[in-house]
């Protein structure tokens, strides 16, 4: 097997130059999916007969929550790759995933809270799902804080990778919390196996929004990663040349 791609992937400069051409395309895909999904969900999906219009928050809340967890996996896997193969680039991706994941987790909590008020009658409750997602938010914040706490970058990267991996135990807990401790939060409506309990007229815009959030997550992580590459390679000549070009290109 040819492992050249793996070694190239380990080069921050190669990553930066490769992704320059991708960014506008991923932006276009992300924007289209999110606009179609939001308009469909807000204006064209039928009203829920029990929750009324407040359920339209699901088209944001659920995809954002899905990515807050998938993003954590991405961060932890990047951390593991960095630890195992001592790949610099993997640590850069890990560090760049943390702020994106933190914002998405924060959004999942806020949109859930706004949905909870008209539906459950309360902004917040110490329900198992809500509490475990709050823990997820603190884990992301922990990785960000830990990264800044060390003077030595290698030590910081390793500590963050280990925290990410240990924190991974929280993800199945979040996922299963609605089944193990059935309180206010509703169980999953879309299932990989078996019958989904959501009507197709609501499922399609939801799937479009999930795809849109995956695209958005990819885009945001690439943008943050590119900045982190420049930051870490700031002393090298190619970065200096790139930054002092006459026409400033978009990050």
């Amino acid at each position: 097997m040819n492992w050249q791609w793996f070694h190239r992937l380990g080069s921050p400069r190669w990553f930066y130059e490769k992704t320059t051409g991708w960014v506008p395309w991923i932006m276009l895909v992300t924007f289209s999916l999110l606009v179609v999904g939001m308009v469909w969900g807000l204006a064209f999906a039928p009203v829920d007969y029990r929750q009324g219009n407040s359920y339209r928050i699901i088209f944001l809340h659920m995809p954002v929550a899905v990515l807050s967890m998938a993003g954590y996996y991405a961060m932890a896997i990047a951390g593991a790759v960095g630890l195992i193969w001592r790949m610099k680039m993997a640590f850069i991706v890990m560090v760049s995933t943390a702020p994106v994941g933190a914002v998405l987790t924060f959004l999942a909590l806020v949109t859930g809270s706004i949905w909870g008020k008209p539906t459950w009658g309360t902004w917040w409750i110490w329900d198992a799902r809500l509490t475990s997602v709050l823990v997820l938010f603190f884990l992301y914040m922990g990785v960000i804080a830990l990264q800044q706490a060390y003077q030595n970058r290698d030590a910081a990267d390793k500590a963050c990778a280990i925290l990410s991996l240990v924190g991974m135990v929280n993800i199945p807990i979040i996922y299963k919390s609605v089944d193990w401790w059935s309180t206010l939060h509703q169980p999953a409506t879309i299932k990989m196996v078996g019958q989904s309990t959501i009507d197709p007229s609501m499922k399609y815009p939801l799937l479009i929004m999930i795809a849109g959030l995956y695209a958005f997550f990819t885009l945001a992580v690439i943008l943050y990663t590119r900045i982190e590459v420049l930051r870490r390679e700031s002393r090298s000549q190619w970065v200096s040349d790139l930054l002092t070009q006459s026409t400033p290109k978009r990050g």
Binding site: N53, F106, W115
Partner: peptide, 18 residues
């Protein structure tokens, strides 16, 4: 949105800003 407007729109507005 039959009274749910403030909730739905604020959730969407906050998300778009984020």
């Amino acid at each position: 949105m039959k009274g749910h407007g403030p909730f739905v729109w604020s959730a969407y507005a906050i998300s778009i800003v984020a």
